[in-house]
Design a binder for these strands. Structure first.
Lengths: 176, 176
DNA sequence: CCCTAAATGCGACGGATGTTGCGTTAAGAT
DNA sequence: ATCTTAACGCAACATCCGTCGCATTTAGGG
């Protein structure tokens, strides 16, 4: 049931994009009644929030490549993939976050969790002796990943994998 | 007339935020009839687009502080101010850009223009001999400003002026 | 000054969106 | 097996949003 609905949301998202996503269409496609959707999910952003949380991997950890730069490049490639996927759930939830507080909070929670997990990559670099312990992990990750979000989500322009890597390298260099 | 409407849009934005902005409320506040708004501006995003374009400064140029780093810091402070203003027209238009293609295009146009103008700051640095001529201006500006957008718009968390400066310095260092 | 055309005001309409009351079904407890 | 409770289906309803036809005003040209 919930799976049917979320699958329908994803399919509708792929066909019509975020602005063309309606409760009714999801109801028809999933075979679940309109009223049920309104009762359990309230709004379109609510559906997207659930989709985001259903897709969140509870065991996610940043890849260990042996160097800070390599780790950051790996993270950037994951972000790049998530933002260029079709449909990109992340992109849709970002759009939704401007409409309801719940979506905004869900997104903040999701990212907070990711930033916390990703900080592991900084600790590993400290243990290796690559960097000192006073590096601000959040700031470092912002430097690495923010350009991807800006270019792909806000500017809505393509970014090559090479440029994504470049920004990871700039971030790594900023703390060396 | 147009000025009345745009002022009403800004006021409504300040009071209810982007998701609470309706054509009807703007009509009542501005004293202009609903129908007229629908005819001239079509949608809420349309109103915001017009507000953005009305506020665009045709003569804008990046401040000349005498160094690349100083110039980037100045740019970042402007971006910081625009994103923390209340109401932030930029934030609202970003939200609108997820709903209609026109808003997305208007935003892209606006930023493209800004990026083009800001490239001047790189040329000045080249003339000064600070950097070589093969620096990618767009990439450099992404490095400097993207973290502010990510933190303030997407993560919806505060960022101190000092951190904004930090990201400008990282960007400057990446090409030195 | 008058005529024409474009823009605005106005009320009514149609469609989409979200809500409510009620009957039915499904799940769990005893 | 029966009772209880929660979830779902269903249809009717209310509301909001955007559109349309028509009257009125405004601006500009002859």
């Amino acid at each position: 049931m919930r799976a049917d609905v979320l699958a329908a949301v994803e399919a509708e998202l792929a066909e019509h994009g975020y602005d063309g996503l309606t409760i009714d269409a999801v109801a028809v496609r999933s075979g679940v009644h309109r009223t049920t959707l309104y009762r359990r999910w309230k709004t379109v952003p609510g559906l997207l929030v659930d989709l985001l949380e259903a897709g969140a991997d509870d065991a996610w950890e940043p890849a260990d490549t042996g160097s800070l730069e390599g780790d950051l490049i790996a993270v950037n490639r994951e972000v790049h993939a998530a933002l260029t996927a079709r449909p990109s759930v992340t992109q849709a939830v970002i759009g939704a976050s401007f409409r309801t507080a719940e979506a905004a909070e869900a997104l903040t929670r999701f990212w907070k969790d990711r930033y916390t997990r990703t900080a592991l990559l900084v600790r590993r670099a400290v243990e290796r002796g690559e960097i000192t312990g006073d590096v601000d992990a959040h700031q470092l990750l912002l430097t690495a990943t923010a350009p991807l979000y800006h270019q792909l989500v806000l500017l809505r322009q393509p970014m090559s994998r090479a440029k994504a890597d470049h920004h990871a390298r700039v971030a790594a260099a900023s703390v060396h």
